[in-house]
């Protein structure tokens, strides 16, 4: 094998795939990855997703529309397969909601990777969407949070929040009219409700930790 081919192959397997399911905000995640020196591609190609080293599932938008595109592109099967391969998998924002069983938004059946529901914030007493910078309380340690300052704040913008069925799937919580799960995870899957790519250097640090993570907890 030539050196060039070898390095090409290395690049292929080191590659981070950002799943393209028609949601917004994918390029912001790609820019943040490039900034921290990580090679990535935005793709809906099954082969590319399955051959990458790790997968990011970001996005803003509505759950109903997102699931419709995911099913139309047959990405649901690919996502389940990549997770079964034990590859590190990161959901961001909408990605942290559609990995649950269902969403109250458009009453949508979702991917059911982590059992639970994406619930809407109550309309009374607080402004919805939850928009801006909030801190978090870590419930259990995780490689993603290595070296992250405990007082750091992160950028949120959402009207629905992840409510996993099992407490063990909650990694950190944030308070907004009551505590909700802002980081959830199980095995090689982890997801943040806040935008890592828009949370300044602490967000970039978590993104970097994800890219260094072997998927084991």
């Amino acid at each position: 094998m030539t050196r060039a081919a070898y390095s090409h192959e290395t690049a292929e397997t080191r590659m981070v795939s950002i799943i393209d399911y028609g949601a917004g905000n994918l390029t912001s995640v790609a820019r943040a990855l490039r900034h921290i020196g990580v090679t990535c591609r935005i793709t809906d190609q099954h082969k590319e997703i399955l051959s990458s080293e790790r997968v990011i599932f970001p996005g803003v938008g509505a759950a109903g529309k997102a699931m419709e595109v995911i099913r139309r592109k047959n990405l649901d099967g690919v996502i389940h397969e990549v997770i079964a391969q034990k590859k590190p998998f990161l959901g961001i924002c909408l990605g942290a909601q559609v990995i649950l069983g269902r969403s109250e938004e458009d009453n949508t059946a979702c991917l059911n990777i982590i059992p639970g529901t994406a619930r809407r914030f109550p309309d009374r007493g607080i402004k919805v969407p939850h928009m801006g910078w909030s801190d978090m309380s870590v419930v259990r340690s995780h490689p993603l949070l290595k070296g992250v300052n405990g007082r750091a704040q992160f950028y949120f913008i959402h009207s629905y929040y992840p409510a996993p069925e099992q407490k063990e799937d909650i990694i950190a919580t944030t308070d907004y009219g009551g505590a909700f799960a802002c980081i959830i995870g199980r095995d090689n899957v982890v997801a943040t409700q806040f935008h890592l790519e828009k949370s300044g250097r602490h967000g970039l640090k978590i993104l970097k930790n994800f890219c260094d993570w072997d998927g084991r907890v």
């Binding site: 900034h35 913008i157 935008h195 949370s199 300044g200």
Partner: peptide, 8 residues
């Protein structure tokens, strides 16, 4: 701006 600034 988007290349170097990681806030909204």
């Amino acid at each position: 701006v988007a290349k170097n600034i990681f806030i909204p």
